[in-house]
C-alpha cells in the first residue's frame, strides 16, 4: 500500500514533472515572429533532448517583459544584463549560460567624412540612440559620456539601431550610439560611410537564466542540452542566431559589477 502510494506519488511527481510546460520569456529585441523563428528550433531541440515541455512566452514590449519577469512569470528567460541584475535581486533568477566569446560594447559612430575624431567635439551636439534603455547602444555610452567626459549632449531616441546609423549617415545627428553586432549588420556602403570614434567598456552579454522554482535537475538538463547544442556545427548555427557565438556557463558575478555604473540614472521608465 505504502509502496503503491510511494510509487504513485513518485509517478505523480514524475507526471507533474512531465506535465509541466516550462515557460521561456525572451526579451523582445525583435518582433515576435522573428523571435519565434530564432528560438523555436532551440526549444524543439530542448524538448527532444530533455524530455521536458517548453513554451515561449511572448511580451509585447520591453517594459511588459520587465514587469513579467519581475512578477516571476517566466521559468526561464533570456534577458539583457541589467534585467539580470534586477531579476536576480527581485526574484532570485540565476544566470545559467551566456556567450562567453563576446562582450557587449557600445560604439559611438560618426560619419566617416566628418571632422569629429574626439568625443570632446560632440559637446552640444545631437547624438542619436535607439532607445533610452538600450544597454550597449545607449546606457553604456551615455554613462561614459557623462562620467568620463565633461560634455553635454542632446540625445535623440530614434527607435532602432538601424535608425541610429541612418540618422548619422543623413547628418541628422552628429553621432550615434550602437553596438558592433548591429553595426556589422549594416550594408557595406553604410559601414564604409561610418566611423567608430569610441568603444565603451565590455559587459557580459545577455544570459539565459532560470527561476529558482524550476527543479534543479530540469535546470541541469537544460544547461547540459544547450551546452551540447553548442558543441556541434548545426547547433552552433542555431545558437548564433540568438546570437550566441560560443555558449558557456554564466554566473551572477558576471553582471553584478554593472551596478557600479549606476546606469539607473539614464534609465527611463
Amino acid at each position: 500500500m505504502l509502496l503503491l502510494s510511494a510509487l504513485s506519488s513518485l509517478s505523480w511527481v514524475n507526471l507533474q514533472a512531465q506535465d509541466t510546460t516550462y515557460t521561456i520569456g525572451i526579451v523582445p529585441q525583435f518582433e515576435a515572429k522573428k523571435l519565434r523563428g530564432i528560438w523555436q528550433p532551440i526549444i524543439n531541440y530542448l524538448e527532444q533532448e530533455t524530455g521536458h515541455q517548453f513554451r515561449i512566452e511572448g511580451s509585447p514590449s520591453i517594459p511588459d517583459f520587465e514587469n513579467q519577469f519581475l512578477r516571476g512569470e517566466f521559468d526561464f528567460t533570456y534577458m539583457n544584463p541589467l534585467h539580470m541584475i534586477s531579476a536576480y535581486e527581485n526574484n532570485s533568477y540565476a544566470p545559467l549560460l551566456r556567450d562567453i566569446d563576446k562582450l557587449l560594447h557600445g560604439v559611438l559612430v560618426v560619419k566617416a567624412d566628418s571632422s569629429i575624431t574626439k568625443i570632446a567635439q560632440l559637446d552640444g551636439s545631437i547624438v542619436a540612440f535607439p532607445s533610452p534603455n538600450a544597454l550597449g547602444a545607449s546606457l553604456l555610452i551615455r554613462q561614459e559620456l557623462e562620467d568620463n567626459y565633461a560634455i553635454r549632449i542632446y540625445p535623440r531616441y530614434v527607435k532602432t539601431h538601424d535608425s541610429v546609423y541612418l540618422n548619422v549617415l543623413l547628418g541628422e545627428a552628429a553621432a550615434g550610439g550602437g553596438v558592433e553586432k548591429t553595426l556589422n549588420r549594416q550594408p557595406a556602403q553604410y559601414q564604409q560611410a561610418l566611423r567608430i570614434i569610441h568603444t565603451t567598456q565590455g559587459v557580459a552579454p545577455h544570459p539565459i537564466a532560470a527561476h529558482p522554482r524550476v527543479p534543479a535537475e530540469v535546470v541541469e538538463s537544460v544547461k547540459a542540452a544547450l551546452l551540447k547544442l553548442g558543441s556541434n556545427a548545426e547547433g552552433k548555427a542555431l545558437l548564433a542566431k540568438i546570437p550566441i557565438s560560443r555558449i558557456g556557463p554564466a554566473t551572477i558575478q558576471d553582471y553584478l559589477p554593472l551596478k557600479q555604473l549606476q546606469l539607473d540614472r539614464f534609465y527611463v521608465r
Binding site: 542619436a128 535623440r156 531616441y157 530614434v158 527607435k159 532602432t160 539601431h161 538601424d162 535608425s163 541612418l166 540618422n167 543623413l170 541628422e172 545627428a173
Partner: peptide, 9 residues
C-alpha cells in the same frame, strides 16, 4: 517626427 529612419526606409 521620431527620426525613425529605419522604419521610414
Amino acid at each position: 517626427l521620431e527620426n525613425d529612419f529605419s522604419a521610414l526606409y
